[in-house]
C-alpha cells in the first residue's frame, strides 16, 4: 500500500490486514505506557485545509503513539490563506523532509492530486476530501462493527475475519457524504450487504452502479434489511434553509429519516447504532438513540486512534514488526 486515498482501492485482503493490524495496535493501548517506538524519527504532517479538530487530534494521537514527530499545518492563518497553492504547500513540506502527509481538504480529489501529480514523493493519507472519501472513518466503522459481530464490541475480533453476511443500513445525506461513499465500497468489499436510505434529493444521480440497495423509505428498509448496524449520517441544517433546499424542514426530515425512539425500539436486538459524529441530536438522531446501549458512537472515536495507527504503520513501516 503506497497511499490510502479511497476505500474503493482496497482489496479485501488489504482491508482485513488493516483491521487486524488495528487490533494489534488496540492491544497495546490498554497498557499504561501506550507509546510504541515504531515510527521514531519519522515526521508526519497533518495538512488540514478544512477545520476538523476531532479528526486531526485522532491522527495526531495515532502518530504520537507510534513515536512519530507530528507537524500540524492548518490552512487558516497560514500561507494558504494568503493564496498559496496546494502544490507550493506540498513542495515546501517535501523540502522539509517529511515522511508522510495526512491531508484533509474541502476539494474532492485533492489527496489524489497530491499523491499523483509528482509534487511530493511520500505516502499520502486521505483524512477526508470534499464529498469524495474518508477511508479511515470507514475502516474504523468496519473495525467497530467487526468486533460487535464477533463478540461484545470490546473483545478483539478474531484475525482474518471480514463482515460476511452482515447487513448495514446507511441513512441520510448520501449525496454530500464522503463517509457514505467510503463505507459503501468498504463494507461491500468486506462482504456486508449495504442498504442506503435517503430522500431522493440527497442521493446522487448516477448511484445505480454502487454495490448497495437504494431505498427512500426508512421504515420499509429497516424492516427488510434486518440490520446488524444502522449508520446515521450527519445532515447539515443549512442544506435545507437555502433556496433549492434539499428537504422542507428539520422536523419533516426527522419524522421521515431520523432515528427516533420508536424506530430504535423496532431494531433487531443485536443491531448497533453508529454515527461518524458530530451529531445533530434531534435531526438525524434522537438523544434516546445516541445515548442508548446500542450506540457505538464513543467506541468509534476510540477505535479511530487504533485504525489510524494501523494505517500510518502500514504506510510508513510496512513489513517491519510491531514492537
Amino acid at each position: 500500500m503506497r497511499h490510502l486515498l479511497s476505500t474503493a482501492e482496497l482489496t479485501r485482503d488489504e482491508a482485513v490486514r488493516i483491521l487486524d493490524t488495528a487490533e494489534a495496535m488496540a492491544a497495546t493501548q490498554g497498557r499504561s505506557i501506550k507509546k510504541l517506538p515504531t515510527l521514531r524519527g519519522r515526521t508526519v504532517v497533518n495538512l488540514f485545509f478544512e477545520d476538523s479538530t476531532r479528526t486531526r487530534i485522532s491522527f495526531e494521537a495515532a502518530a504520537k503513539r507510534l513515536s512519530a514527530d507530528v507537524l500540524n499545518f492548518s490552512a487558516k492563518g497560514s500561507s494558504v490563506s494568503k493564496g498559496e497553492s496546494l502544490k507550493d504547500t506540498a513542495l515546501t513540506l517535501q523540502a522539509m523532509g517529511i515522511d508522510a502527509v495526512v491531508i484533509r481538504h474541502h476539494d474532492s480529489g485533492a489527496p489524489h492530486r497530491l499523491a499523483h501529480s509528482g509534487w511530493i514523493d511520500v505516502p499520502v493519507l486521505n483524512a477526508g476530501d470534499g464529498t469524495h472519501q474518508h477511508p479511515t472513518q470507514a475502516l474504523l466503522d468496519a473495525f467497530t462493527l467487526r468486533r460487535h459481530l464477533s463478540a461484545d464490541g470490546e473483545t478483539p475480533a478474531p484475525e482474518d475475519t471480514a463482515l460476511d453476511g452482515a447487513s448495514v443500513v446507511i441513512v441520510g445525506d448520501v449525496l454530500h457524504s464522503r463517509v457514505a461513499r467510503s463505507n459503501v465500497s468498504l463494507l461491500h468489499t468486506l462482504g456486508a450487504r449495504v442498504t442506503v436510505v435517503a430522500p431522493p434529493t440527497l442521493l446522487p444521480v448516477g448511484i445505480e452502479p454502487w454495490p448497495c440497495e437504494v431505498r427512500y423509505d426508512l421504515d420499509e428498509a429497516l424492516a427488510e434489511a434486518v440490520p446488524d448496524a444502522v449508520m446515521m449520517l450527519r445532515v447539515q441544517r443549512e442544506r435545507m434553509t437555502s433556496a433549492g433546499g434539499f428537504f422542507p424542514s428539520p422536523h419533516e426530515y426527522h419524522r421521515r429519516y431520523g432515528l427516533d425512539g420508536e424506530r430504535l425500539a423496532r431494531l433487531p436486538e443485536r443491531c448497533v447504532v453508529m454515527h461518524p459524529g458530530p451529531m445533530n441530536r434531534g435531526l438525524e438522531i434522537s438523544a434516546e438513540a445516541a445515548d442508548s446501549p446500542r450506540s457505538t458512537i464513543v467506541e468509534q472515536v476510540g477505535n479511530g486512534v487504533a485504525v489510524r495507527m494501523a494505517a500510518l504503520y502500514l504506510l510508513l513501516a510496512g513489513e517491519e514488526g510491531i514492537a
Partner: peptide, 24 residues
Amino acid sequence: PRLTVGAQMHEGVVSAELGLAGWP
C-alpha cells in the same frame, strides 16, 4: 445557471463516485 451552481463535471455515474458536483 441555477442547475449548475458549483458544477465541476458531467452529472452521472462518474461524478457520483468522485464526489464532484454535477453539471446535468
